[in-house]
């Protein structure tokens, strides 16, 4: 019995040592990763700041300082005058279920595959308004910045475009109506 008790004691001691080992080695591993990360970041040419500005305001500001966001009223006026081309940045499935009348589909996740096909007949001075769903509307922001990089000079973003368009009962259509 004494032998079994000492074996149990040793087992508990070994387990405690193991857990303590895991604990201090976890800290050491984190510390090593952080040191390595900061060292790599410090010596690289495209250094990332430790705290970045990720507000939507910053994201929607082009490199030359112009704001990309367009108000809903302005977008509606341009739609009525047919002075702007609307690009739907949502997925194809969402586009087929319903989109702004006359809008073309250019899903942000397929932009590499579909960019040329969708934009080959659009001149670089055409006013393009990208939209998607949601207040922050990431795909439309990303698509707008991408189009600016690709040489289109006049790109705007209609934040939460689809939801507000539906709410105001403005013209919509379904299916793939643009050949």
């Amino acid at each position: 019995m004494a032998i079994f008790r000492s074996i149990e004691k040793n087992k508990v001691k070994t387990d405690k040592v193991k857990y303590f080992q895991v604990a201090w080695q976890s800290f050491a591993m984190f510390a090593l990763s952080i040191l390595l990360a900061f060292a790599i970041n410090q010596f690289r040419s495209d250094r990332l700041p430790l705290v970045g500005d990720w507000s939507i305001k910053t994201k929607l500001t082009a490199a030359n300082g112009d704001r990309l966001e367009i108000s809903f009223e302005e977008a509606e006026k341009l739609f009525m005058k047919k002075s702007a081309l609307f690009l739907d940045a949502r997925s194809m499935d969402d586009y087929l279920k319903g989109h702004i009348l006359g809008a073309r589909s250019l899903p942000w996740h397929d932009v590499d595959q579909r960019f040329i096909e969708v934009t080959e007949d659009i001149s670089s001075d055409t006013l393009i308004i990208t939209y998607c769903d949601g207040v922050s509307c990431e795909p439309s922001c990303n698509l707008a910045l991408f189009l600016l990089d690709m040489g289109f000079n006049n790109v705007r973003v209609l934040l939460n475009g689809w939801a507000v368009w539906l709410k105001r009962r403005l013209p919509v259509e379904k299916g793939n109506t643009v050949s």
Binding site: V22, Q25, M29, S33, I34, I40, L50, G52
Partner: peptide, 28 residues
């Protein structure tokens, strides 16, 4: 966000390396 973007890939690299060289296996 930026801190995670800087540190997380290095943590993955360290974990992967430790797994391959069989170092500090329990914590890895």
């Amino acid at each position: 966000i930026n801190l995670t973007a800087i540190v997380l890939p290095c943590l993955e690299l360290v974990l992967g390396t430790f797994l391959i060289i069989h170092f500090w296996m329990p914590v890895t």
